[in-house]
Design a protein around this nucleic acid. Structure first.
Lengths: 138, 138
DNA sequence: TCCATATTTCGTTACTTGGCGAAATATAGG
DNA sequence: CCTATATTTCGCCAAGTAACGAAATATGGA
């Protein structure tokens, strides 16, 4: 029961996208893929550009792009242009912390999952690398 | 923001089935189908037997059975034999209220969804009917 | 014991989804 | 205004999923 004390306001998360079964399902579906969860957990507390995420997941850029668009459609992440790159981050990281908080909780509770552990390590390396060089390799 | 004040402990829900990405995904997938959400919402605060659920959803018994087994596998519902019927209910309705609480919240936030509204009305009628007669028609 | 019946399992079919590579799009910077 | 390049869109294939009906599997009660 390591997280039993963690209490989050899931209400707002539901409110924003609720009153329509379709939208709730869209959110749940977005959370139902391993690679999309990996993306969300990687985005906890930081922004990443598409090529950094692509390097982390080791998938084709087109596949990563599709996943990002599904997460965007579900209002779980937001995008922002920075120079020649597009940065993604958890939705409303500052203002409305619900979705971001849920993901953070998820990440913590998956701390011992081998895949997630690997990702954390890999991500540290990626953040040390030059973004320019990283993108050029795609 | 009708539900903004509703705060739920999602942490325990994660704890019980966490530390494995696979199990978290299983839970999210179980929550990603409209008919399964309809079942969960119908079960809020009460037990129902399979034939009552089948009547509510208007699907083949075999299909309903499959949905129930997916929800069971995700630890979202529990079953219990009552006479010649099998009753289903939200997991840990009394003890650990997390999953049940999330579903309750979900139901409230979907209150105005036409499908969910219809279901509530239909369920009221079903509960008035004789279970024996209802099952015999399947 | 055996029958009636409530529920599940199995096999099939139609549809959805995740993956890739190729082509298209957009745009920062020379 | 080009060109290089970051990202997305498109078309395809393989794998997964929801639906059904038919058959199998309990099991309560006569």
């Amino acid at each position: 029961m390591t997280c039993a004390d963690v209490i989050i306001t899931y209400g707002t998360m539901l409110d924003r996208k609720s009153s329509q079964l379709r939208e709730v399902l869209e959110m749940h579906k977005a959370l139902s893929d391993a690679n999309r969860l990996r993306i969300l957990i990687a985005l906890t507390g930081k922004e990443l550009c598409v090529c950094q995420i692509t390097e982390l997941l080791q998938l084709a850029p087109s596949t990563v792009s599709k996943h990002l668009s599904i997460l965007r459609q579900a209002h779980l992440i937001e995008m922002r242009k920075v120079g020649r790159w597009i940065h993604y981050r958890l939705s409303d990281q500052n203002v409305d912390t619900t979705a971001a908080e849920y993901i953070r909780l998820l990440g913590r509770s998956l701390d011992r999952d081998p895949q997630i552990k690997d990702d954390r390590k890999h991500l540290k390396e990626i953040l040390k690398m030059d973004v320019d060089a990283l993108c050029r390799r795609m």
